[in-house]
Design a protein around this nucleic acid. Structure first.
Lengths: 263, 263
DNA sequence: GTATACTGTTTACGAGATATACACTTTCGT
DNA sequence: ACGAAAGTGTATATCTCGTAAACAGTATAC
């Protein structure tokens, strides 16, 4: 009898997804015959994440991952079809973050801040996260949990679906953007401590020579005063910028919500 | 006579910059002896940009760039010290955008929109731009022109330098973020036209199977209605999101500016 | 007019992703 | 129970890339 013809609409629809995404959903048939695998996808992903956390995304080679597990490079290909898959899985793995409890209705701003903060915290733990090229809208399970949580912050606001998605995009994009900045800062501190900090605080001195008033009339004073390169050494300049910009965005959202309420 | 001992403070400060940055400023001594080079940095960069525009950043290999110019791979290393340099130069090259004329004092919002739009336009012309990893604060000449222009939009606002930099960061980060989204969209369209568009509009169908109400209570309705994957096919959904989010940010900035005026 | 500082080229190496072929192992259908 | 099928980890090999090193030729400075 031909049991090949079961409709299996789900299976068909799933074919449209890239392999790595399918793996992340665990929607891959388990092999029945043959020896049981000694490795497993979670193991591989965990090893890869550990390497990336320690030595950056560039250090994640199939060879290195395999060696850290005590296997050969090619053994990994029994579990994933390409390195791209691995990156997708790594990304989804570190998105497994427990969203905090809901807050009372009036505190949606605080919830949104939680959202951005927790996103940032995740990126700081896994700085390579922002190095993985974005290939599209989130579609892996833990990634979507993040999205779900973002939408949750607006559960009590009178906004339509499009508006909510726009705002989630706005907030997560903001978090990502600052994640990149924070990563760069951390990286610079890591390097700076080891290397020459004597040659002027980063490029400050050099820029003072290069940025001429006639070419950069608006930027010039900031470079000269050291504001541009943050010579001042405030307690936490980037963190302050972050908070500041976020408050502006939240103000903007609040204004919009209020204006809709009127109608 | 030893003319090696000229102070040359400028030269010393410049040493702190990465080589690619130095090249972008043209601050590299011209060779006097030996044959004149048949190539030139602008030529190389132009060729590399052309390749990246057509086939993406991954297609930019030293080999391919050299071949497209009719030279051998290694000849490029007579002009730049590494591929990293090339990326820096490419990035700076495409930032050579003429800022539009200033607008009257009251129209700072419009100027900020111009800023974001022009940034986006540049990214659309050179989608690989956002694939180049950010290594730090902008320090190359054309990149700094962008910053200068960003600060210019606030020339008539009562803000201090830190606030202005924060806002430039906010706006350019927003542009970059949407640049990534637009690139992804364009890419998807490019692929979709060639490949299977029959398998359901992207992942919509697949997601409807995977996103269960119990796991994603907030996201679920949006996936089912197709809002999440933008099935509706509005005239320009991403462009609308962009405009919408930008207006929220500008609202937030305006609120802040107004609140400061009061004092 | 020769030493010097260049030029573009050739060759070589090492890393990295992955295709292929192999020998071994488990399970299913009979 | 037994052979075929499916699956496992491994060894080897290929291809692409960035770039170091050595080389032969050429233009300029003294």
């Amino acid at each position: 009898m031909s049991n090949t013809e079961k409709p299996d609409l789900e299976h068909e629809a799933l074919q449209s997804l890239p392999n790595g995404v399918l793996l992340s959903w665990g929607k891959v048939k388990q092999p029945k015959r043959g020896p049981k695998g000694e490795l497993s996808i979670p193991q591989i992903v965990e090893a890869a994440v550990k390497i990336a956390d320690r030595d950056g995304l560039a250090a994640v080679s199939m060879n290195r991952v395999a060696q850290s597990l005590g296997f050969t490079t090619m053994s990994l290909y029994r579990y994933i079809t390409s390195k791209e898959d691995l990156l997708v899985l790594m990304q989804d793995a570190v998105c497994a973050v427990e969203p905090p409890a809901e807050r009372p209705e009036s505190q949606w701003r605080e919830e949104m801040k939680d959202y951005v903060w927790l996103s940032l915290q995740m990126i700081r733990k896994h700085p390579w996260y922002v190095d993985v090229p974005i290939t599209g809208v989130p579609v892996t399970p833990n990634n979507l949990l993040f999205v779900d949580w973002g939408i949750r912050t607006m559960r009590n606001l009178e906004l339509n679906d499009y508006e909510k998605i726009s705002f989630v995009l706005l907030l997560s994009g903001y978090a990502r953007h600052y994640g990149i900045l924070l990563r760069d800062m951390d990286r610079a501190i890591g390097n700076g401590a080891t290397e020459d900090s004597f040659s002027g605080r980063g490029y400050t001195e050099a820029l003072k020579h290069l940025v001429r008033q006639e070419d950069y009339p608006n930027l010039y004073p900031m470079v000269q005063s050291g504001v541009y390169t943050e010579e001042g050494g405030e307690p936490n300049p980037i963190g302050d910028d972050l908070e500041f910009g976020l408050n502006r965005i939240l103000d903007g959202i609040e204004m919009y919500v209020e204006s809709k309420k009127g109608k």
